[in-house]
Design a protein around this nucleic acid. Sequence first.
DNA 1: CTAGAATGTGGAACGGGTTTCATAGCAAAT
DNA 2: ATTTGCTATGAAACCCGTTCCACATTCTAG
Lengths: 317, 317
Amino acid sequence: MATIRDIAKASGYSIATVSRAINHSGYVSAKAQQAIERVVAELDYAPNAIAQDLSAGVTHTIGVVLPHSNHPYFTQLLNGIMDAAFDSGYKITILPSGWQRSLELEYLEQLRRKAFDAMIFTSHGIPLKELAAYQRYGRIVICEDPKDTDLPAAYSDREVAYRAAFRWLQQKQVTHIGFLLSRAQEHISATSYATLRAFRAIYGRTPGKDWIISGINTYEDGYHTAEKFHQHQIEPEYIFSNGDDVAVGVRQYYIQQHLPIPGLVGQENQLTSKLLNIPTIDHHFVQIGAAAFELATHPEATPDREKFQSEFILRGI
Amino acid sequence: MATIRDIAKASGYSIATVSRAINHSGYVSAKAQQAIERVVAELDYAPNAIAQDLSAGVTHTIGVVLPHSNHPYFTQLLNGIMDAAFDSGYKITILPSGWQRSLELEYLEQLRRKAFDAMIFTSHGIPLKELAAYQRYGRIVICEDPKDTDLPAAYSDREVAYRAAFRWLQQKQVTHIGFLLSRAQEHISATSYATLRAFRAIYGRTPGKDWIISGINTYEDGYHTAEKFHQHQIEPEYIFSNGDDVAVGVRQYYIQQHLPIPGLVGQENQLTSKLLNIPTIDHHFVQIGAAAFELATHPEATPDREKFQSEFILRGI
DNA sequence: CTAGAATGTGGAACGGGTTTCATAGCAAAT
DNA sequence: ATTTGCTATGAAACCCGTTCCACATTCTAG
């Protein structure tokens, strides 16, 4: 591979002039420009991107931490991020984490080592406080309520739609609701917390322990939880699911067992809920992803928080 | 940010010794090691990743060209790639292309400029021949039959399942089949070609022009094509779709119009086809993605082509 | 006791760019 | 005739690491 020094030598001009000619920066005579361009073409030269990055001190790369990829929450966020990145001059690097603390720390370390200009955490295993501490090494954007940290964030106000959903259920005089929520943690996850809080706000009580199942994410999870409910003679009138696919998995179990299907509420507004006419919640994650990208690439952005209103999509009945 | 020279100065050792101490390479006395480690901790030093990349001449990054992201073909491939990349020390950079020639060339240019160690094209707008020419700048892996080029490839032998599907249809004495195929191009796309070829092999004839619709990728596309069929009084017994979502869109139209639903064959083996009990085809794209990643990161791999058998998944009736 | 091996260290080159700054030619303005 | 200002160019510093190689010790085997 030819380097800029080769071009300088072959053209008879200095490295500095060659650089100027190539980048069209500063003064270069027409004669020099032509001569250099000819040599560049001859030697099939193209400037080395890594060297440029080193010199400029930037990478034009945003690292996106994804716990896993086969979940609509992440797919939608990623789509939004990619759409925004398209033609922005930034590259998106995917950092699969599986919520593993060690991996997340490794990626943060890479930020510290200037491998990325900024990072977006679509979710995180390590506490927000700890994340926030890494901000001194580079910009870090999260996709949830930043709470008492000063992390820039683009996120959904989940409770808006949750409350709408529970109000609707209350009007229908539904009292027995099963909750299939996302991953269980030492500290209950933000989503699950918001769900239960909205329920409490509307219904004025807390659901029974047996009616809340955590760590539910997939179609299969939904199916098996329905099975468990059935075995334990828990018979919800409605099942509030963490995702359309989950709801559909639940439905599938009852259908296969020839049992009456309880009412369902999904999330993510996927094709599946549309097809089966199941009410769902749209958190507008595509927009949130795009907003997160903008926040990541515009450190001077203000305000550095964007809260999107979630939406309850009423269907069926 | 502290640099290695700062560490050298502060510790009283040379740059070379500091480098050796940090990388645990070569000889370093216990005394020097300790002294250097103390200073590293004090100054909160971490080696600059870009500088290391420049020095090493590699980026540990694989560029993955994706036309768009909201299609199972690409999602599945990407999942496979990511799974394989996980813990491999490689980063995956997403390069959205929209099949635009200009963008694809830009990304190839980046390969030439050493921004990536290798590239994976999940699909491509520019001809294979042209792609192959860029191999001199870096390894390029594709996810389809490389034809008469020497590009390394991981891909599905689509015709296996296609033939199985058509054999099944023939046995059922189905004669009127509508084809909803992928994007139209100057030269018909590889997938569409394989479909029609398999049909011809089994049925011994070519479908009528009116029965083949190209450029169909989504639920909406399926819906509108069904509408078009209906308006033109084209009444297929079976509709062979480019994707489960497409098939489901078709189905939706007939349901809404209270028309009899034709038989359906989907592709991608998605949740939707499972739910609605629609036969489908699994091309094992997750595995193909993983294989593509291995090919990308192991230039010495031989053979440098991996063909996966597609699978017809019979459901319903 | 000594040659050769093993250990420890640092200067300097290298990877491949960008940018600052000094120098110089030349034309317009004073 | 002198000053000012613009164009043009290149040497050298800079970005921040890794590594080659030469040199100096110290150890070990013969």
